[in-house]
Structure formats: C-alpha cells, structure tokens
C-alpha cells in the first residue's frame, strides 16, 4: 500500500506521455527531421519547469512528505566516455523503436501488443550490458 502513490504517479505520467504523443514513432521522426516544434516544445518546457522546481527545492530547503531533506544524487561527471558511447547507442535505439523506455510501456498498455518484443529486447540489452560492463570503456 505504501507504494500506491507510485502506481498513481506512474499512471498520470503514462497518460501525459500518451496525450503529448511523445510515444509516437511518427513524432520522434518529425523531431529528428526538424519538421515541427512539438517534441522540442515538450522536452524543452519539461526541462524548464524541472530546473525551476529543483532550484526552488534547493533554495528554500523544501522537505519531502515525511519531513526529510530532499536529496538528489548527482550523476558521476568524472566518467564521460559512457555518456557519449552509451548515449549514442541509446539514440540509435530511440530512433529505431521511436520510443524510449517510458513510452515502450505506455505503448504496450495502449494495446499495441508487438511492443512486448522491444521491451524483451531492451531487457536483453540491459542484461548484456551487465554481463560485459567490466570490459567496456566508461
């Protein structure tokens, strides 16, 4: 029951992704072909609101619902190869499937059953990364 709030939040997130049409392979192609502002508007305004929100949280020392300090773990910026190489590979997948991980689950939920295939393939990709992690440059 303690996790019900995450179920509801995820539901709202999935619903927004659907209404924003960012789960659409067509919209992703439109973005990568620079034909429309839609995707740039969604991502840009999301980041804008995100930056302002986190600044407010930090400046005013906002607590979470349990009264504890909000802690945001920083990303490790000492490693850079992983972000470039891993990022490029992710980008290949993003353009091929037309979906990043969130949309994959929303698309499956919307009833397009074929999306179980890229989800299983993504699990295989995750597992393969885990298996070969030590051998990859980071």
């Amino acid at each position: 029951m303690a996790h019900l709030k995450y179920l509801v939040t995820g539901l709202v997130f999935g619903f927004i992704l659907t209404k924003a049409e960012v789960i659409s392979w067509f919209r992703i192609q439109e973005m990568f072909r620079f034909h429309d502002i839609h995707m740039y508007g969604v991502i840009g305004s999301a980041v804008f609101i995100g930056i302002i929100s986190i600044q407010i949280i930090k400046r005013f020392n906002v607590k979470d619902i349990h009264g504890e300090d909000i802690r945001i773990a920083p990303k490790d910026s000492t490693q850079m190869k992983r972000y470039v190489i891993g990022g490029l590979i992710f980008g290949f997948g993003w353009a091929l499937t037309g979906a990043c991980p969130g949309p994959l689950f929303a698309l499956l939920g919307s009833g397009i059953t074929i999306f179980i295939v890229p989800i299983l393939a993504a699990l295989a990709g995750t597992w393969t990364y885990g298996a070969f992690r030590e051998k990859l440059p980071h």
Binding site: K75, D76, R82, Y83, I85, G86, G87, L88, I89, F90, G91, F92, G93, W94, A95, L96, T97, G98, A99, C100, P101, G102, L104, I114, V117, P118, I119, L120, A121, A122, L123, A124, G125, T126, W127, T128, Y129, G130, L136
Partner: peptide
C-alpha cells in the same frame, strides 16, 4: 526497428546510466 532497436535502448540506457 523492434528487436535491434529495443536491444540498443536497453543496452545504451544502462551504459549511459539513464534514459530520456
């Protein structure tokens, strides 16, 4: 698009330490 693309999404996201 479905199989290789999906594999890249999973592999690349973990390699890069996160997705979109």
């Amino acid at each position: 698009m479905l199989v290789i693309g999906g594999f890249f999404v999973g592999f690349g996201a973990r390699y890069a330490g996160g997705c979109t």
